[in-house]
Amino acid sequence: MATLRVGTRGSALAVAQSTTIADRLARATGTDVELVRIHTEGDRTQGSGESLASLGGTGVFASALRTALLADECDVLVHSLKDLPTATHPGLVIGATPGRADARDALCARDGLTLETLPQGARVGTGSPRRVAQLLSRRPDLEVVDIRGNVDTRLRRVEEDLDAVVLSAAGLGRLGRLEAATELLGLGWWPTAPGQGSLAVEVREGDPDDVLARGLGAVEDRETRLVVTAERQVLAGLEAGCAAPIGATAVVDAGLLLLSATVYSPDGTGTVSSSHAVSLDDGPVEAQLVDVFEVSRRVVDELLELGAADLAPIGGGPSGGDPLGSAS
């Protein structure tokens, strides 16, 4: 492999994320690496005025990238994991899950305000149904405004016509803009999107040669794969899209994987939550994933028993297989 081609969206955040992974692949393989910028439907409709959810959710950003990978226009893709549907894509697998960044949401408000100190009726922008539900659950007096655009575009709205916006701390950090955050919202009371803060390196199934396999192995982080798989299995088990009003948080602590998930009604007036844990042995990741699937199934079953399907637009079917595919 003379040059390793890394496919990416053209946004500043996507390029920053892809550049980080490209640099790591180059160091691990000793191979030249180049970025291949791919325009997606989500990028083309940024100025359409339609909400991301109405356009089909965050999966609109992945489709064109995956088409390019299957067409051999690039060798690997770098995604924000929360942007990927949980179902595996035919012919593709997640070859590596790098170490996770900060999974929290960040409030970016004028005058250093926090969620608690925003004035009555403050205008807060977000394009996420989950964040809409969480904002209204905590502060039903807020006026939540649907917004689109890149990070800089959204932050400018705070200077123009909004009191605050909610963004991911990881995205702000990767762009060197974390100073814009006036409050980091704790995962204990504000769970974020399954997989938030994590990247996914996607490759063609059965394709990696020895060089690429070495690079993927250097990028892979086992703990990240376990926790994001647990979170995304909640979405898969509930048959919910990645834009559904669902928050999930998994952590590994003292050999235990702890998984919590909350389903919100779209208007924030109702919630149901479930938390379970599983002990992880020191075996191979494939064996640990079996336990991860089981604890995710328990969380899904309890959420459904508590009435999650009556709150949010979810299918509520049984959990499926590993949404991340093989750890090749």
Results as ranks from 00 to 15, higher is better:
Ser273Pro: 01
Leu115Ile: 14
Glu286Met: 06
Ala169Cys: 03
Asp322Ser: 06
Asp163His: 15
Leu212Ser: 10
Arg154Tyr: 05
Leu226Ser: 13
His79Leu: 01
Gly112Met: 07
Ala16Gly: 02
Leu13Asn: 10
Thr114Gln: 02
Gly317Lys: 04
Val285Pro: 15
Gly171His: 12
Lys82Asn: 02
Gly268Met: 12
Leu226His: 13
Thr29Glu: 13
Phe61Gln: 09
Asp207Thr: 13
Leu65Phe: 06
Thr249Ile: 04
Val300Gly: 04
Leu238Asp: 08
Gly206Pro: 11
Gly56Lys: 15
Thr117Pro: 00
Asp32Tyr: 05
Val36Thr: 14
Ala213Arg: 15
Ala230Tyr: 14
Phe61Leu: 14
Glu302Ser: 02
Ser54His: 02
Arg139Asp: 00
Ala53Lys: 03
Arg27Asp: 15
Ala308Gly: 00
Leu135Asp: 00
Val60Met: 06
Arg222Pro: 15
Asp282Arg: 09
Asp267Val: 01
Asn150Cys: 08
Asp253Gly: 01
Leu212Val: 12
Val144Met: 12
Arg138Met: 01
Asp32Ala: 15
Ser275Gly: 11
Arg214Asn: 06
Leu311Thr: 01
Asp152His: 08
Leu259Tyr: 05
Gln196Phe: 00
Leu324Glu: 05
Glu302Lys: 02
Asp83His: 03
Gly195Trp: 09
Ala133Asp: 00
Ala26Gln: 13
Glu239Ile: 09
Val151Met: 15
Ala243Gly: 12
Leu115His: 03
Arg66Thr: 10
Glu239Asn: 13
Gln134Tyr: 08
Val292Ser: 04
Gly206Ala: 12
Glu223Trp: 06
Leu187Met: 07
Gly112Asn: 07
Val36Gly: 11
Ala2Trp: 14
Asp221Gln: 07
Ala244Asn: 11
